[in-house]
C-alpha cells in the first residue's frame, strides 16, 4: 500500500465535483421537507432532469439552456406529485415511489435517440489569479459555475429560512399546518411552490450528472443518487449548512474508497459502501438527544376542514 500516491489536492477537488449533484438534489428536498412534505421521488425527478437537460443541451449546443430546461422538467414532474398529494390528498410515500417509477420510464423513453452522444462541454470558470493560489486555488477555484451555484444555493436557502418572513412561514407550515392555516396562510399553495422548487433542484442535479460529471446519457444513470440525497437531508438534520458537509462526506466516501483501492489498500468495499447509511442512522439517534428534529408535520396530509 502506498498512500503517498493519493494527492490530497486532487482528492479534494474531485470531491467538490462529486458532491455537486447530491447537493442540488438534497437542498431541493430540504425545502420540500421543511414545508412538511416527504417526496420520495427525488430519483425520478433527477433522472428526468438528466435526460431533458442532456437533450436540450445537445440540440441547442448550450449547456446553460440545458440546465434551465432540466430545472423546468424536474419542476413539471414534481407538480404531478404536488397535484396528487396536495389536491387529491393521496399518500405521500406511495406517490413518491410512483413518481420515481414514472420518471425512470419516462426518461428512458425520451432518451432513446441520445445514447452514445457527447454533450457540449460546460466551460470551467476562469477565476484567474485565484486558481493560482497554492493548494486552495486548485481545490476551490478550478470548477465550473454549477459547483459554485450549488454552494450559493445552500447559503441562499439558509438565509431564506432563517432571515426572511417567507422562510418563517414555510417552516411554520412544516411544523404545524393546521396552525398556519388558521393564521390565514395558504398551506397548499406554499407546499406546491416548495415541491416545484425541490423538483427544479433535483432536475439540475440530474443534469449536472449527464452534462458535466459523467458526461453522457444512459438509461438509469442516476443509479441511486436520488436516494442518497434523501438520506443526506436527514443526515443534515434539515439544515442547509450541514447538507454541504454531508454532501462532501457522502460523495467523499466513494471517491475515498476508490483512492484507497488504487493506492493498493485491501479494503472491504461493501462495508465501506454501507457506511454512509449507518452514519445517517447514527446521526438520527444522536439528533434525538438534541433539539433539532424532523419538521413536525412531515409526511402528514393536510386538508382544510373549514
Amino acid at each position: 500500500m502506498d498512500l503517498s500516491s493519493i494527492n490530497p489536492v486532487l482528492l479534494l477537488a474531485s470531491l467538490m465535483v462529486a458532491a455537486t449533484p447530491l447537493l442540488f438534489a438534497a437542498l431541493g428536498e430540504l425545502i420540500v421537507e421543511r414545508a412538511g412534505v416527504l417526496n420520495l421521488g427525488v430519483e425520478g425527478m433527477m433522472i428526468t432532469g438528466a435526460v431533458s437537460g442532456f437533450i436540450i443541451a445537445v440540440e441547442s449546443g448550450s449547456p446553460a439552456l440545458g440546465f434551465i430546461c432540466a430545472a423546468i422538467a424536474g419542476a413539471l414532474l414534481s407538480l404531478l406529485f404536488a397535484l396528487l398529494t396536495q389536491v387529491f390528498l393521496a399518500n405521500q410515500v406511495a406517490s413518491g415511489l410512483a413518481l420515481t417509477l414514472f420518471g425512470l420510464g419516462l426518461s428512458a423513453l425520451l432518451g432513446q435517440g441520445y445514447v452514445g452522444i457527447k454533450p457540449p462541454s460546460t466551460p470551467k470558470l476562469d477565476l484567474g489569479m485565484l486558481a493560482d493560489i497554492p493548494f486552495i486555488g486548485r481545490v476551490l477555484f478550478t470548477h465550473d459555475l454549477m459547483v459554485y451555484l450549488a454552494l450559493a444555493l445552500a447559503i441562499a436557502i439558509w438565509f431564506f429560512l432563517h432571515r426572511t418572513r417567507a422562510g418563517l412561514i414555510l417552516r411554520g407550515v412544516g411544523e404545524n399546518h393546521d396552525a398556519a392555516h388558521a393564521l390565514g396562510y395558504k398551506v397548499v399553495m406554499i407546499r406546491f411552490a416548495a415541491i416545484a422548487f425541490g423538483g427544479a433542484c433535483a432536475g439540475v442535479g440530474g443534469a449536472y450528472l449527464s452534462l458535466v460529471r459523467v458526461p453522457q446519457w444512459t438509461e438509469g444513470m442516476t443509479a441511486g443518487i436520488g436516494w442518497i440525497a434523501l438520506a443526506l437531508v436527514v443526515f443534515a438534520s434539515w439544515k442547509p449548512g450541514r447538507v454541504i458537509l454531508g454532501a462532501y462526506l457522502f460523495g467523499g466516501v466513494n471517491v475515498l474508497q476508490l483512492n484507497l483501492q488504487a493506492a493498493g489498500a485491501a479494503i472491504p468495499v461493501e462495508y465501506l459502501a454501507m457506511s454512509p447509511y449507518l452514519v445517517t442512522i447514527l446521526v438520527l439517534v444522536i439528533m434525538s438527544a438534541e433539539r433539532s428534529r424532523a419538521p413536525a408535520s412531515l409526511g402528514r396530509p393536510f386538508h382544510a376542514s373549514h
Binding site: 413518481l99 425512470l104 420510464g105 423513453l109
Partner: peptide, 8 residues
C-alpha cells in the same frame, strides 16, 4: 420504458 410509464 413504455411499460414503466404505463405502470406509473
Amino acid at each position: 420504458a413504455a411499460i414503466q410509464v404505463f405502470q406509473g
